[in-house]
C-alpha cells in the first residue's frame, strides 16, 4: 500500500455563533465540517469543490491548524498532527505550504518581493547565508516565471497574476510535499487564470508536489485534479476519481453542479437541457435534518429527512453519501 501524505479521519469543526437577544447572550454551536475523511497521496492533486459557505476554507485551515478541530484525527507524514504540541508544529509545517485566493492581500505591502519569498527560509533555513538565500529566491522566481530584476520591488507594483506568482514562489521555495491552494485562480482574469493553472501543473510535475486544490469552479478542478471531493454544508457528498465523477456523477448534488456549468460553445449550450437546482443552500447554522441536501434535491423522499445517509462505496475509491444510490444499483 502506498504511504499517504495526509490522512484525515472523521474531522469535525464547530464554530460558536451568538444567538441571543438584547438581554441574554446565548451561543449556538454549529458544525462547519462534519465527519469528513479523506487522504492525499504523494504528488497527487485532490480537488475540493463546493458552493460558498460549505466549509472548503475551514477544512484547509484545520489541516494547517489555523483553526482548532473538535474531533477527528489528522495524520501528516505518518505522525499524529492533531495532538502534537504547538512547539513541535513548526517542523511539520515546513512541508506544508499555502497559496491564497486574493493575491495582493496575501502579500505584506511593506515587504519587498525578495523579503516575501525568502520568509520561509528565515524560518526554516537559518543556516544559509544572505547570499545563498538571495540565490534561492532568484531561482524560485525564475521557476514561477518572474523576472529576477523585479526582486526589490513591492507587491503593489505587480499585476494580480504576478502577485499570485509571488505567492507561489514563496510556497515552493522550501520544496514542500503538499501545497494547499485556496481558490488560487478565482480572482484572476481568464487569460491569466490559464497561465497560473499551467504553472501549478508544471511545478507539480517537476517537483512532485501534492496539491489540495480548492475551488468553486468545476471546470478548473476537472482540469487539474486526479481526484475530486464534493462538499455541501460541511459534509462530503461524493469523492471519486476525476473521470468517474465527471462522466458518472452519482450524487444528485454533483449532477446538479455539473449541469449548472455553462459550456463556452453556443450550439451545445442552447441545445442542452439544464436541470437547475431550486433556491439557495440552507444556512449551516440551521442545517436540515437527515440528509443536508434534501431541501434542494429532486429525488428526496421520506427517509432523506429522517436519516443522515452514510457513505457508500460505489466502486473502489468512489464514495457517495446518498440514500438513493444503492437503490438505483439494485434495480
Amino acid at each position: 500500500m502506498r504511504e499517504n501524505l495526509l490522512d484525515v479521519e472523521n474531522l469535525t469543526i464547530k464554530y460558536k455563533v451568538k444567538n441571543g437577544n438584547l438581554f441574554f447572550n446565548r451561543y449556538r454551536e454549529f458544525k462547519a465540517i462534519d465527519q469528513v475523511s479523506f487522504n492525499i497521496g504523494p504528488s497527487e492533486t485532490l480537488g475540493l469543490v463546493g458552493e460558498s459557505g460549505c466549509g472548503k476554507s475551514s477544512l484547509a485551515r484545520a489541516i494547517v491548524k489555523l483553526v482548532g478541530l473538535d474531533s477527528g484525527k489528522v495524520t501528516w507524514l505518518g505522525k499524529d498532527w492533531t495532538s502534537s504540541h504547538a512547539s513541535t508544529d513548526r517542523k511539520f509545517r515546513e512541508n506544508l505550504q499555502l497559496v491564497f485566493q486574493d493575491p495582493l492581500a496575501s502579500l505584506n505591502p511593506r515587504m519587498t518581493v525578495s523579503e516575501i519569498i525568502s520568509e520561509p527560509l528565515e524560518n526554516y533555513r537559518k543556516d544559509l547565508s544572505v547570499l545563498e538565500k538571495i540565490e534561492l529566491v532568484k531561482k524560485s522566481m525564475e521557476t514561477v516565471g518572474l523576472s529576477t530584476s523585479m526582486i526589490n520591488r513591492y507587491p503593489h507594483e505587480f499585476s494580480g497574476g504576478q502577485c499570485q506568482r509571488i505567492g507561489i514562489a514563496r510556497a515552493i521555495i522550501l520544496k514542500p510535499k503538499l501545497i494547499i491552494c485556496d481558490e488560487p485562480v478565482s480572482a484572476l482574469d481568464v487569460s491569466i487564470q490559464a497561465q497560473v493553472i499551467n504553472l501549478l501543473k508544471d511545478l507539480q510535475k517537476r517537483f512532485s508536489i501534492a496539491l489540495l486544490f480548492i475551488s468553486h469552479d468545476l471546470s478548473v478542478v476537472k482540469h487539474i485534479s486526479d481526484r475530486v471531493m464534493v462538499l455541501y454544508l460541511g459534509r462530503i457528498m461524493e469523492i471519486a476519481n476525476v473521470n468517474d465523477l465527471f462522466s458518472n456523477p452519482s450524487h444528485p448534488y454533483s449532477q446538479a453542479l455539473l449541469s449548472a456549468i455553462p459550456i463556452p460553445d453556443p450550439i451545445r449550450e442552447k441545445e442542452r437541457k439544464r436541470d437547475n437546482l431550486v433556491g439557495d443552500a440552507p444556512s449551516p447554522i440551521f442545517p436540515p435534518s437527515g440528509c443536508v441536501f434534501r431541501t434542494r434535491c429532486k429525488k428526496s423522499t421520506n427517509i432523506c429527512s429522517i436519516k443522515e445517509p452514510r457513505e457508500k462505496i460505489v466502486k473502489l475509491g468512489h464514495r457517495v453519501a446518498c440514500h438513493h444510490v444503492s437503490d438505483e444499483e439494485s434495480k
Binding site: Q193, A194, I197, L218, S219, K222, H223, L258, I261, R268
Partner: peptide, 14 residues
Amino acid sequence: CSLSLEKKIDFLEA
C-alpha cells in the same frame, strides 16, 4: 484558454 468540462487537454494554450 477558457476551460470547459468537455475539453480534456493537458496544457492550456494561455
